[in-house]
Write a protein that binds this DNA or RNA. Sequence first.
DNA 1: TAGGCCATCTGGTCCT
DNA 2: AGGACCAGATGGCCTA
Length: 192
Amino acid sequence: MEGRRTWDGVPLGESHSPPQSVPGRRTPLGAVGLGGFYMQGHQPPPQHCYPTDENQPEPGTSYAQRPLGDGKSKQKMRQGKNVRLNINARERRRMHDLNDALDELRSVIPYAHSPSVRKLSKIATLLLAKNYILMQASALEELRRLVAYLQGTATAAGIVAPPGFDLAGLPATAKLLQPPNLGPPAPPDPPS
DNA sequence: TAGGCCATCTGGTCCT
DNA sequence: AGGACCAGATGGCCTA
């Protein structure tokens, strides 16, 4: 969803600088203290559109609509409301962190990174990343076989390595290409 | 207009 | 108790 842009309410007392443009981001960074963001050509929505957890309750929420009782319950409600708003803010921050991680993932997997190309969706990012990992593993395995083959044929034929090419180093190279030893598998969790 | 994608809110569950 | 994580619900925006 490229057009939807929101900006978290900034707690009272914190700077409320205008969002900075960070191309490629879908989500604002305000929640993680890195400033907000809007796509170029998009104006930030009017202030009353922002969900402002710490400042105001969202109109229409169950909390906002709950009828007021006596003073005690009113106080309790206010506290409960603040708790709820804090939980909301945390959850929002958590999702922003998740989106940041997805952005980092997008930046390291090969696909057309271009302003004219639509950003990968979350699910597409995950699937592409999985396929990329499988492809790399396959390529590594092929390379490993090739090194082993070269090692064998070179030795059998008594081939002298050309200058700058260390045949004696092939075994070491092949070793380097071995899968990392991750140790024995972790024992299964004891039944609770 | 329908469908896809997304942000946010919300309540539940689990863990520390 | 508080925080992290999760999934369902809701509503907005965009594209075909």
